[in-house]
């Protein structure tokens, strides 16, 4: 459902993403691993149509994000890394706004908002103004926004970042559950998350894929049987990169 073909992004002289290609099928949860600055967020921003790629293409449900951006965007639910929200709105008015802009009609929008609030455990804060919320709630509000239109493809940039262990567990369970009939691409640098929620994982370093496989396969690649060691072996530490 997500087909990424030779996606490249160049910022000035810096090559952020280097001819990246991969696919995510329906029912698959792909974990996108890599150190900070490896090009994970940039890749996701290109697939969601926020920034145009320098070259290459990404297709979502067969629709090219370059040739057919409007339609491709209707298939995607996206949680950006910083979980941005309009602080002056309440949780439910924000979600209603997102549902309306996604083109959901009155009653459908109302149902969608209620469903998303329930799925993301937001009912206790639904009427609260967003700028009074704690980080965990904000994050889940933004996640709820991505689920509103029941998209076929979910792209989540660090969905568990800033959550407490309980919330992390809930979000992982949610991703696993949603992954049964959607294609999910999510980035993280918490390695346990891969085993907990992914059906497949790729490790990206400096804009290139350096490892690809199921969590079990990746662990087998490591000499010590630990994902952390494999990660450390394959990726560049920023202290090295600077040197």
């Amino acid at each position: 459902m997500i087909e990424v073909h030779k996606l490249t992004k160049q910022f000035g002289s810096k090559l952020a993403v280097d001819e990246l290609s991969f696919t995510v099928k329906k029912g698959e949860v792909l974990g996108f691993l890599g150190p900070n600055g490896a090009g994970k967020s940039t890749t996701m921003r290109m697939i969601t149509g926020f920034i145009p790629p320098s070259s290459g293409d990404a297709k979502v449900c067969g629709l090219s994000i370059i040739e057919n951006p409007q339609e491709a965007k209707t298939k995607i639910g996206y949680l950006p890394e910083s979980a941005p929200l309009y602080p002056d709105m309440t949780v439910s008015s924000f979600l209603s706004f997102c549902a309306e802009i996604r083109g959901l009609k009155k009653s459908a929008a109302k149902d969608a908002v209620e469903r998303a609030i329930e799925t993301c455990f937001l009912s206790s804060v639904a009427r609260q103004s967003i700028d009074t919320l704690s980080k965990g709630y904000r994050h889940r509000t933004c996640l709820a926004q991505a689920l509103l239109h029941d998209p076929e493809v979910l792209i989540l940039d660090e969905p568990t970042d800033g959550l407490d262990p309980n919330q992390k567990h809930e979000v992982r369970q949610l991703i696993k559950r949603l992954g049964k009939d959607k294609a999910i691409l999510f980035s993280t640098h918490i390695l346990e998350e891969v085993e907990a929620a992914c059906s497949r994982a790729v490790i990206v370093d400096r804009g290139k894929i350096v490892a690809d496989g199921t969590p079990a396969e990746l662990i087998a690649q490591s000499d010590t049987g630990s994902l952390t060691d494999l990660f450390r072996k394959l990726t560049t530490r920023d202290t090295e990169a600077a040197a």
Partner: peptide
């Protein structure tokens, strides 16, 4: 500044 432009940019609107 809020980064909400990233939401607007990925909604199916021009």
């Amino acid at each position: 500044r809020n980064g909400t432009i990233e939401l607007l940019g990925t909604f199916p609107v021009s």
